[in-house]
Design a protein around this nucleic acid. Structure first.
Length: 268
RNA sequence: UAAGGAAGCUA
């Protein structure tokens, strides 16, 4: 059962619901994890009707969803933009008096944020008793998804005055938002806060910095950060190369490309 | 280490 369930999970998350379902149908014994994984796969792929049909069969078989079940499905609703189903799951959790853990609450507010429902997301956020950095970051990310720059930064400032420390994921969300808005001053300010708080500069965060500076037209600054990062990866190169090209520095982009190929970096 | 919450370029 465990191995088959793991396979179903893998195929489902990989977008292959057909092989997942074949394994599912051939299993004599299924448990709640098996059902959870199969339905999650359908939601992940946007095959909501098949998912719902399976949920009905699951209930007929007297298999009850638990909190992880709902959590998994809510996450996939966010991924697939399945707002209505997400609302249904939210209602189900409330109706069955699930203790809405910080994990589930964060998944719910993230789902609403990804679906553009920032007000509902905020209501959940405000209703949370103990909010950790993931909850704050999910809320900021929700504002970022809806291009609510002001709200995102208001919340971030609120976060800075709390006892919770933002982490690199929080900062990445803010930097992406600054880049998309072309808000160079804000971006620099975020950069400064990062340094002040001593947040570790991993590849993802460094890429977000490069991207922010590049999108705001500060290519040289972006270049400096790129050069100064030891473990570069392909996304980081793409961010810089693309912006060099966008700013009419195609020759430099080309040179960078060949320099990186020499260093055994494989283009994607 | 069988399903569990928030992140980067490009699409």
């Amino acid at each position: 059962v465990n191995v088959c369930t793991a396979l179903i999970d893998m195929y489902g998350k990989g977008g292959s619901t057909v092989p997942a379902r074949q394994i599912f149908d051939r299993m004599a014994h299924k448990n709640v994890v098996t059902w959870t994984a199969m339905v999650a796969g359908y939601i992940h792929c946007g095959e909501l009707d098949r998912g719902l049909e399976l949920v009905h069969r699951m209930l007929e078989d007297n298999v009850s969803p638990n909190e992880i079940t709902i959590l998994s499905w809510v996450i996939e609703c966010g991924f697939a933009g399945a707002l209505e189903l997400g609302k249904l799951l939210h209602a189900y959790a409330l109706k069955n008096r699930f203790e809405v853990s910080p994990l589930l609450a964060t998944a719910l507010l993230d789902m609403y944020g990804k679906c553009g429902e920032v007000r509902i997301a905020r209501a959940i956020f405000d209703g949370m008793g103990r909010r950790d950095v993931a909850a704050w970051t999910a809320m900021i990310s929700g504002y970022a998804h809806s291009n609510c720059l002001l709200e995102a930064f208001k919340l971030f400032i609120h976060l800075l005055s709390s006892n919770i420390e933002p982490n690199s994921i929080t900062m990445v969300n803010l930097l992406v938002l600054c880049g998309e808005a072309g808000a160079l001053h804000l971006g620099k300010w975020v950069h400064g806060i990062m340094m002040k708080l001593g947040i570790e500069l991993d590849v993802v965060l460094a890429t977000a910095l490069v991207d922010m500076y590049a999108k705001c037209g500060e290519i040289d600054q972006a270049y400096q950060i790129f050069v100064g990062t030891r473990h570069k990866d392909i996304s980081m190169l793409n961010a810089l190369m693309g912006s060099l090209a966008m700013h009419g520095r195609g020759k430099q982009a080309w040179e960078l490309f060949h320099e990186m190929k020499k260093q055994k970096m494989t283009p994607n």
